[in-house]
Structures are given as structure tokens and as C-alpha cells.
Amino acid sequence: MNVKPLKGQHHVSALTANAKKNYEFYTKTLGMRLVKKSINQDDTSVYHLFYADERGNPGTDLTFFEIPHAGNTYKGTNSISLTALRVKNDEALTFWKARFEESGVEHDEISHHTGRAAMGFRDFEGQRLMLVSDENNDGVPGGKPWEKSPVPVEYGIVGLGPVTITVAKGELTAKVLTDVLGYRETRSFPAYEKGQPEVRVFETGDGGTGAEVHLEERNDLPQERPGRGSVHHVAFRVEDEKELRKWVDWITQTRLPNSGFVERYYFRSLYFREPNGILFELATDGPGFETDENFESLGENLSLPPYFENQRESIEAKLKPLDTKE
């Protein structure tokens, strides 16, 4: 492998059937900042919304494609089954528990099941999420919450935590993580369901909450049927375009079918599916979301990469208006 280690999570992209409610939940309830209101570049008739820290630093983005008629998610294997969001310390979890109770957000109790203080919760479409404490984290640093957030900065979400992958054949995914992507297996913790194998923990780069993948093997479930509230893909951080092109060569050498180099304007990407069918993306740290908007007005207007600008009128005509200047 003539490539540098991946740096951890870059972003997680999920599905919603309602952009307006999605925007309200992630900005007003969770206090994340909408740093980009754009389109799905593979289907320009739907929104792609990016929620993150104050400026969308790599490793802080939770993004959503709006699929207005998306059906229910039928949970199962071959899925990204849980997305964790980082907070600064254990005290923040106490704040969030009270906030969720006040807001009517479905949540679990605070626990140390994964080896860290954490609390599972669901959004209005059943998106499976977890808050995880960075109290003892000495790995990849988190981002910086937006000071204009409705959530106090000291309790704000600072980035993406571990991503849980649920598969039927764990060893196949484990081999891709270690042999192809260069992750190291570091520990395990008890399964979420009794009688199932322990959840295996893999980490990359500096490690810690922002650079872990949790691998859960389940032989008692059917394959997941995705819909609203499911995750589309997870992206991992690559330093820059030069490094990404090395990864394109490496992934091609391993004979994994892949997209090759893809221009996404705000970052550059490579996509491939691991043997259980989960979509992985490798994405560069830059150029970032201030390429076409200034810091103060991030996410307020519909942003289109330059190669879509000549279609703006027809694209806007298909999109349901979404006011993000509140």
C-alpha cells in the first residue's frame, strides 16, 4: 500500500423523506449548522443537505438526500446501522438527556456499553443515532460548534463518532477494513443483542472516537431494505487530491469495482462497495464549503457546483422551496 492511512470519518450520508422537518430537527433540536444546501449530484431533482460544526470541517458532516416518497426502512444486515455524534464530555450527555425529554425525542439511557459514555436516540424518521462522549478521547480532534446554535457551545456536537456496520459475513468486511483500507483491529465489546458475536472495533490514523468503525455480525436478520431513516454511505478522510489518486490506483489494484476519481466540487471522491454491499467513499479534506459561500452565510442559499450552474433555473423549478435563512 503506497498510501497514507485514512484520517477517520469524513461524512455520513443518509435518507430523509422530508427536507423541512429534517432541517428543523438537525438545526433546532440538535443544534448543528446547515453548512450547505445543495443537490444530489446524481439526481438533481432532490436536495442534499449538509449539517456540521461551524464551518463543515472534515469529520463533522452528517448529510441527507431528500427522497420525498421514500418508504419505511426495514432494518437488517448489510447496512450502516448506527451513526454516532461526538460531544465534549460526559456532562454533555446529561444535558442532552434532559433536552431530549423536553423535546420528545426518543432516546435510551446513558450507558458505557461501548466502552465510552454514550446515549442512543432516534430522529423523527427513526434514523439510528448515538451521542458519544469525548471525555477520554485522545485521538482525532473534534470540530467547533457554531456559536449561533440554539445549543450552548459547551454541549454542542463536535463531529462524527464511530460508525456501526451490521453485516451477515463479518470476516469479509473485516478483511477489507484491514487489508485494503489499512485499519487495525483494537478491541471488542458485548453485542447489542444477547447471543450474538461481540462487536469488533477497528481504527485508523490517530484513532479515537472520530476514527473508529464498529463491525457487528448478525446471522439472525434479513438484509436491510433501505428507506427514510436509513444510511446511504459512509465516507472516510483522505488528505488531498494527490493522495486520493493514489487510493484510486490502490483500490483498482485490489480488483474491487470502483467509481474512479469523482469531482464533487466541495471535495473529491472515490466510491466502492465492500463484499457485503455497503457503499464506502474516500473523500478529500478540501476544498471545503467556503468555496462558493462566505462563512457568515453558509447554507442560506441553494449552492450549485459550477458545472450545474447553467441548469439553475430548471433545477430550482423541481425543488420544493426550503427556507434556511431563519
Rank of each mutant, 00 (worst) to 15 (best):
I165M: 14
F121S: 04
K144I: 15
A191G: 14
L215T: 07
K194P: 10
S149F: 13
D138P: 02
G207R: 05
K175I: 04
S149K: 11
R200K: 10
Y192T: 11
S188C: 11
K175S: 12
R200N: 01
Y192D: 07
V163F: 02
T166E: 11
V158N: 06
E171T: 12
P197S: 03
G126Q: 07
G156V: 14
Q127I: 10
G207Q: 03
R184S: 12
P150M: 02
A191Q: 09
V167R: 04
V151Q: 05
Q196N: 10
V153A: 13
A168M: 06
G142K: 05
G205A: 07
R187D: 11
E171A: 06
G159N: 11
V176Q: 00
V132W: 03
T178Y: 00
L160D: 04
I165T: 05
G156R: 07
E147W: 13
T164Q: 14
V153T: 13
T209K: 00
T166M: 15
Q196H: 08
T178F: 01
G139K: 04
D134C: 15
T164N: 14
V163R: 03
T186N: 00
V158K: 07
V153P: 05
L177W: 00
I165Y: 15
L177T: 03
K148L: 08
L181R: 01
T178V: 12
F189E: 03
P197N: 01
D123H: 02
G126P: 04
A174V: 10
P141L: 03
E203I: 07
Y192Q: 10
D134M: 14
E185H: 11
L181N: 03
G195H: 05
I157V: 15
V158R: 08
R128Q: 10
Y155C: 06
E135V: 13
G120S: 09
G159A: 06
E193K: 12
L131R: 04
G208C: 07
Q196E: 12
E171V: 11
E198F: 08
E147I: 13
M130D: 05
G126D: 09
P150Y: 04
V180R: 00
G120M: 04
R128S: 15
E154D: 09
R184P: 01
K194T: 11
G161D: 13
E147Q: 10
S188A: 13
K148E: 14
